[in-house]
Design a protein around this nucleic acid. Sequence first.
DNA 1: GTAACATTTGGTTATTATGCCAAATATTCA
DNA 2: TGAATATTTGGCATAATAACCAAATGTTAC
Lengths: 106, 106
Amino acid sequence: MDSRDKALYEAKANVLKALAHPTRLWIAECLADGERCVCEFADVIDADFSTVSKHLAVLKHAGIIEDEKRGKQVFYRLKVPCVLSFMHCVEAVIASRVAAESELLR
Amino acid sequence: MDSRDKALYEAKANVLKALAHPTRLWIAECLADGERCVCEFADVIDADFSTVSKHLAVLKHAGIIEDEKRGKQVFYRLKVPCVLSFMHCVEAVIASRVAAESELLR
DNA sequence: GTAACATTTGGTTATTATGCCAAATATTCA
DNA sequence: TGAATATTTGGCATAATAACCAAATGTTAC
């Protein structure tokens, strides 16, 4: 593996890392339905505003979402919607794990 | 968001987290071509055997890969191959980021 | 049984991520 | 201008990860 490959795997892993947090994943899925104002998140997410803001920054820095300021509010939307296309597969992983566990308990 | 939803987002994030490391992502993509012996990884990955082993354990624990011992060797294979189906999208995220950056430099 | 081999596990340390608080910034409206 | 609102930033404490080394485990061959 040369250094170019290495850099590519690091870049890909970083995109995944941005999504690999419950709150950020929720945000991303939420944005799949359309853009949202930051204020709309804070109500649902049980965390400080600053925490939510930092999660948004991580997703933005990864290139997954983009923001637009309109008046006092900031709206976010998915920049690359396909990032969620594989979630049904992630759910399949979980389902397979659950199935294996219940098999053990049988 | 109730506690059941919360648990689901945590579970999904954990699957992503398992993939969100350059070495583990490389391993997963490598296994997409078919099963591999641990010994085959160690040659390519520039890291201690124990490090590789721990990465494999993370992927296994997440339910993404499974192992089988045959003789002295242990073989791993993808348990849920679709986990890599979205990698072209992750690459799209990177491409979009690169495009934006080169736009800035224009 | 002992040696050799393949892999995993335990322990330690360094790095990174997370979440809260307080303070800063930007925007609107009076 | 000054108050009110919306969001971000900086700082700090704590928790989670990652990598290495050494030691343990399991397997085959002598």
